[in-house]
Write a protein that binds this DNA or RNA. Structure first.
Lengths: 307, 307
DNA sequence: CTCTCTTTTGCTCAAACTGAGTATATCAGC
DNA sequence: GCTGATATACTCAGTTTGAGCAAAAGAGAG
């Protein structure tokens, strides 16, 4: 056939939200990497089982919710020469911040990788201070006819000049930053991580970006948040997790209205008095909605023009 | 490593809508199959390019819009023994019903594969006449405690007993029918195709089901319909295509309101008088919306409780 | 030429949903 | 019993959605 050998790999974006920060597991290295494994044709009946097996073996974490994300197969994404690496990437949600053993696995802040994605405190400084100048330079060096198009595309993706910030277009934003050479993977020398974001090996940061976008979209119409919170939780706690992932603030009263109008939760009986204010009632997820309603999600109220 | 060899394949669900019927390309055989190809590591820089290459070579069709669907890698999905086949499936949309050469490729009616998915004339006869009895039998043979759960799950998926018909859950419905042995792939002998749907080789019908679900979902928030219609079209024509894919009827006035309130189209100047009634104005897609609005789709009005 | 049938297109209206604000409840700590 | 904090309840205008009525504009029948 051909002299280049094809190899199948698996990648996992393992997500948890702790202390109002979304995190994912990375493996130590320079740069760091997403957990990576292979399919054992003898042992693994399905790709997903293969994933669960080696994640469990390697990090001691038993995955709950798992969803296939994307399969990457571009040339040049293997570190071994002569090997064409085709990787199937998955997103997995885990409840607690299970501390990893001495496997080299650790939890990294998602917004450490993608600092421009966190708009909870308004438009992040990185955008105005570093991204906008980089975009301007990139637009300026284009042929006269393309300048307006480049500026318009950037403005829409990054919520500039009156455009709304679309929380789901994480991948498109990453790809634009890659195109303009803002993220170090694009050949540039290693630079300030707080501004350009912490890089990952190969195209792993791209995978992380795609995963965040997918998850943000999924929040709307499937009750995936509940995979990330403990069995009982307060509505404000739930809201903080949604905010952490979506990267925007939510109107608390409307969030509450949406959640219980949708029948997503029920009172668990019990109180969390550690809030610093009026104690909050504890709720639990109503597993029944999965069967009752066609597309129950948290709906993400109030984020048309965040910031 | 292991004695079983891993092989990477590619599958394409190539879609067109003609005469108000969604169609996809299948290769002659018993049963028929989806177009299948491989990645040539030397020649193909990306998976998507590989797909475009062999579809073009094999059927003469140049694909336009292409989107990755899912990667399948379960054991036992290769016809060759000793080979573990990992297939990356794609959905592609093409405009005209390009007639295929003598490559064995032909257009098949999507609802020939999945007859229970077409609710444009109300709940299809197949559901009441064949599926409901099959479900009842399946529920009856369960342990007493599981019967209600089986019935409830079926009712929700198939829009029985007051449940709404959710157009997007195509895959879940297929999987239920597989589970209860209604679709022939599940080991049963070949049966009446008009009722059980035309089978495809291996898990190809499953892929087709997943593709339909994905496409139906995508209609809502991305302007993919326009990939399927000619450069100029009437609003009713556009509506028929949406109806064909979504499998439900749409309130014409609301559809029209949605489309032009969303700025998705503009008058192309010209008239189609062949409608049998008042002549319809011709429109064209406004490519600009892609840059203007965050998530322009056709919105699919009026399909909460179709049928 | 007029009447009828058909499809296209414009308009209306109530119900549901959203975004955003005001007000009240209930705790901890002083 | 204040003060400060968060939790929770209600309100209200603006928008979107589902659904129907009606006029416009052609073809064909009589």
């Amino acid at each position: 056939m051909s002299s280049e050998r094809i190899q199948v790999g698996l990648n996992a974006v393992i997500v948890a939200v702790t202390d109002e920060a979304p995190r994912l597991i990375t493996l130590a290295g320079d740069p760091a990497a997403l957990p990576t494994g292979t399919l054992d044709p003898e042992e693994d009946r399905t790709l997903e089982r293969a994933l669960r097996r080696w994640v469990s073996e390697g990090t001691g974490i038993d995955l709950g919710y798992v969803e296939q994300l994307y399969t990457l197969g571009d040339r040049g994404r293997s570190s071994e020469p002569g090997v064409r690496l085709v990787s199937v990437a998955y997103v997995a949600l885990v409840r607690e911040r299970a501390p990893s053993p001495d496997s080299g696995a650790a939890w990294s802040d998602w917004y450490g990788l993608l600092p421009w994605e966190d708009w909870r405190e308004g438009r992040p400084a990185v955008v105005d201070e570093a991204i906008v100048p980089a975009i301007d330079a990139w637009a300026a060096e284009a042929a006269a006819g393309d300048r307006a198009a480049r500026r318009e595309r950037s403005a829409i993706l990054f919520g500039l000049g009156g455009s709304a910030w679309d929380i789901e277009r994480v991948l498109e934003r990453y790809e634009l930053l890659w195109e303009i050479g803002f993220v170090p993977e694009a050949g540039a020398a290693r630079s300030d991580d707080a501004v350009h974001g912490e890089p990952l090996v190969l195209d792993h940061r791209r995978i992380a970006a795609q995963a965040l976008g997918r998850l943000r979209g999924k929040l709307r119409y499937r009750p995936v948040v509940f995979e990330l919170v403990p069995a009982t939780f307060t509505l404000t706690g739930l809201q903080r997790v949604v905010e952490a992932l979506s990267g925007v603030r939510i109107h608390a009263q409307n969030f509450r209205r949406l959640i219980d109008r949708g029948g997503l939760v029920e009172k668990a009986g019990g109180i969390d008095a550690s809030t610093g204010g009026r104690p909050a009632a504890l709720y639990r997820f109503r597993r029944d909605v999965l069967r009752e309603r066609p597309a129950p999600g948290v709906g993400l109220p109030g984020l048309r023009t965040a910031g």
